[in-house]
Amino acid sequence: MEAAETDIKLKKPEEKGEVVVNIAHVAKSFGNKDVLKDINLQLKRGENVVVLGKSGQGKSVTIQCIVGMLTPDKGTVKVFGNDVAQMGEEQIKELRIKIGFLFQSGALYDSMTVRENMEFPLTRIKKMTDQAEIDKLVEEALDGVGLKDAIDKMPSDLSGGMRKRAGLARTLIMQPEIMLYDEPTTGLDPITSREISELILRMQEKYKTSSIIITHDMECARITADRIVIMNDGEYIAEGSYEELENSEDEFIRSFFNQTK
């Protein structure tokens, strides 16, 4: 909460390579448990950053700070140059529309069919009314994740992997500028995992989406990452490309990469 922003209206970012998410010295604890200690990360436009780290290290907490679901105890999170902690309700809402968030579980609304799930953000947030246009977008989005046949099913009738893909489609349908993926491939078979990884890559190319991808899947990291950061004990302890980190001197860092071989 240092350097109070006076101009907190969302700016329109255009330049290439500009920083869209800037996390500086963020700390967060729950009770007496210090989950995040000193997190620093800059996400540039059009970049895919993969976050690796053991379970329960606070990877999910970090990305929840970006969308304002959690407020850091110390440090600042700036998105498009604006401090998230300083935003009012309307600005947070505006911000969230530009950020896609894929939950670990997929988080489909289980009282609605897959189609209604897809329509929900279109009609509620984008306030679209043209049914033909909505149908087209929905079909496109589901086609993109290979779920066209499941369009009229209820979430309870889908497998875990299908639910996750549907959740992804529901997020991507809004064409967000920033995507936060919380374990997009966990629990999926290798083939579907690969498809998801490639989809992430396609999103990056097609819409210049910037993404933070939390994963334990090294194949996914290899395919999608422009840059990888490794998180341990509330801090990022290493940063680099896949090849750099794979051949790191540090045993702990290399240990993440050994699982594939």
Binding site: M69, R96, F101, S105, A107, L108, D110, F120, P121
Partner: peptide
């Protein structure tokens, strides 16, 4: 809905 992150998902998507 809370446990399965559906409420969070709705909130984070910018819906109400």
């Amino acid at each position: 809905m809370k446990v399965t992150e559906q409420i969070d998902a709705m909130e984070v998507s910018g819906a109400n």
